[in-house]
């Protein structure tokens, strides 16, 4: 869907540079660019919708180099969500959401019905919010309007630059949850930039860890955690390692190492439940799970032992 090929970009002030970057994003995938500030992740994002022009290399969308199109046409087909929302203060919520369809010259009734239906989906009841101005909304609501604006013309690609960065921690978590559940996003190819490790692991199908303008490692959550490519990746994740591991390992991943044969009791958990949620369950109640017709009962010891065994195998063989 999106192919970034040997792209470099440098700035006179020396920061935010990108050095010989190459990666591909599959259709429907959410790729998270993760790194500290100044690592070049936002620069990368801004090159994809041509807000910046690469010094070297090329970017392709659906096999077509983006430099062959006018920037306006390109951008109108890419949803863009900014950290500080960038909502137009002189436009109402409805007008803000309608911006891109208007640029694409949709007819008025179509724009209106699209904008209203998006407001419904994003829990912004049009009756109360259609004609208010952005500054009258809370931060979480503003962010949802920003998302609605990016989705309005139903673009196949969505670029998100720290979309939850300006929210307080509690709002951030709840907006993120809603975001995950939004079916508008299911079919989209998304590139999301963040410096928040937890957010990256929660939202990304794959994660690309960047440092000093280069990709350090790109892969799924478990690949990054249990098979780090270098010390940078290892150290980068160290602080939250336990929580990340528990959240990214599902029962099915460690199934062979679970030593709790027979005896289904308490809450029955799906094998797709991650270890974090399983532990949380175990603090309240007995729990068990079944996978491929085999039932196992669970407790804290069984779970922890299985995780340890899993990690040992992975570090020895490179895979489970």
């Amino acid at each position: 869907m999106i192919k970034v090929s040997h792209v470099s970009k440098s700035f006179s002030h020396g920061k935010n540079a990108v050095n010989d970057l190459s990666f591909e994003v599959q259709p429907g995938e959410t790729l998270v660019l993760l790194g500290t500030s100044g690592c070049g992740k936002t620069t990368t994002l801004r090159m994809i919708n041509r807000l910046l022009i690469p010094d070297q290399g090329e970017i392709f969308i659906q096999g077509k180099s983006i430099s062959t199109e006018t920037p306006e046409t390109l951008r109108r087909n890419i949803g863009y969500v900014l950290q500080n929302t960038g909502l137009f203060p002189h436009y109402t919520v409805l007008e803000n959401i309608s911006v891109v369809p208007q640029l694409l010259q949709w007819d008025k009734t179509r724009i209106r019905s699209r904008a209203l239906s998006l407001m419904e989906k994003l829990r912004l009841p049009p009756a109360s919010y259609a004609y208010v101005y952005p500054q009258q909304l809370s931060g979480g609501q503003q962010q949802r309007v920003g998302l609605a604006r990016a989705l309005a013309a139903d673009p196949p690609i969505l670029l998100m630059d720290e979309p939850f960065g300006a929210l307080d921690p509690l709002t951030r978590i709840s907006v993120r949850k809603e975001f995950k559940l939004l079916d508008e996003l299911n079919s989209k190819t998304i590139i999301l930039v963040t410096h928040d490790v937890e957010e990256a692991f929660e939202l990304g199908s794959r994660i690309c860890i960047m440092n000093e303008g280069r990709i350090q490692q790109m892969g799924t959550a478990t690949e990054l955690l249990f098979n780090p490519a270098n010390d940078f990746v290892r150290h980068f994740l160290d602080k939250q390692r336990l929580e990340l591991e528990l959240k990214s390992l599902r029962l099915r991943d460690i199934w062979p190492y679970l030593d709790g044969a027979g005896g289904m009791a308490g809450t029955i958990l799906s094998a797709d439940t991650n270890c974090w949620d399983t532990l949380e369950n175990l603090t309240r109640d007995k729990a068990s799970s079944s996978f491929r017709g085999e039932g196992k009962h669970l407790d804290g010891n069984i779970l922890m032992n299985a995780i340890t065994a899993y990690k040992k195998t992975v570090s020895q063989h490179g895979h489970a």
């Binding site: 919708n49 807000l51 920037p71 306006e72 046409t73 390109l74 951008r75 109108r76 087909n77 863009y80 900014l82 950290q83 500080n84 929302t85 960038g86 909502l87 137009f88 203060p89 911006v99 891109v100 640029l103 604006r149």
Partner: peptide, 17 residues
């Protein structure tokens, strides 16, 4: 606000728009 002009450009507005 540069955020707003960047948003407008990113939405696909031409310099004139």
């Amino acid at each position: 606000d540069p955020n707003i002009t960047e948003a407008a450009t990113g939405m696909g507005m031409s310099p004139r728009q």
